[in-house]
Amino acid sequence: MARYGMVIDLDKCTGCRACMVACKVENNTPQGHFWMYVFRFEEGEYPNTRTWFMPRPCMHCDNAPCVKVCPVGARYKRLDGLTATDFDRCIGCRYCEVACPYGVNYFNWKKPEGNYYLDWDDPDLAEIVGDEKVVYANPDLDKAYGPEKRRIAGGGQAKGVMEKCTFCVHRLEKGLQPACAAICPTQAIKFGDLDDPESEVSQLLREKPHFRLLEEAGTSPRVFYIGQHAPNPSVRQIEEITVKV
């Protein structure tokens, strides 16, 4: 069985944040939720300054702190390496979120249907699109996935539950790449089977030096980075996004 992983080439990332938007539209995540987030960094002092970028999906750790602490098994590891969230089982205790050192979890603080950017209840629009709350609703997100048949895809599913990057599990099962990897203009984001030595990701990891985030935390992320270096205290975030809902 394939065990998926992601390899992000920071030497190729232009920091455009297309992956962030593609993720949002694909997964219908509510306002303020960035399952994929792109850090824009600078380091050094003028004129010896360097600008670089780092996309941050969920790390889908093999030794995932979030899975370990989930009291009800809503957060779990799939055999294909994905760290999934069963939004039907989640009780909304947010323990996974405080346990995660990467800050990738997003809780539905609000009723999601009231949290999609625009007034979709506008009567003129309602006449055209009916009572759809996310008018670009992706129909794949409500299905159950995996042999365990659990509903783990998409965002904005219910008030009071936790959600995060799913590696676009609904796309994987159709044979497609995650939305971020598919959209990346410079193809900095590669996705594939890390167990298959012939896969593009495995080859990249053989060929190039790489690192993982917070390796010292022992979480064994399935997301690898090529190029640049792990962010350290001298790295400063620029054009940061802090949206509260």
Partner: peptide, 21 residues
Amino acid sequence: RNNGTLCPKGVGQIMSFYDPN
């Protein structure tokens, strides 16, 4: 021109279809 990829504006403009404003 874009080889199957898009920029954030390209993906995000889906909202322009539906924008009630």
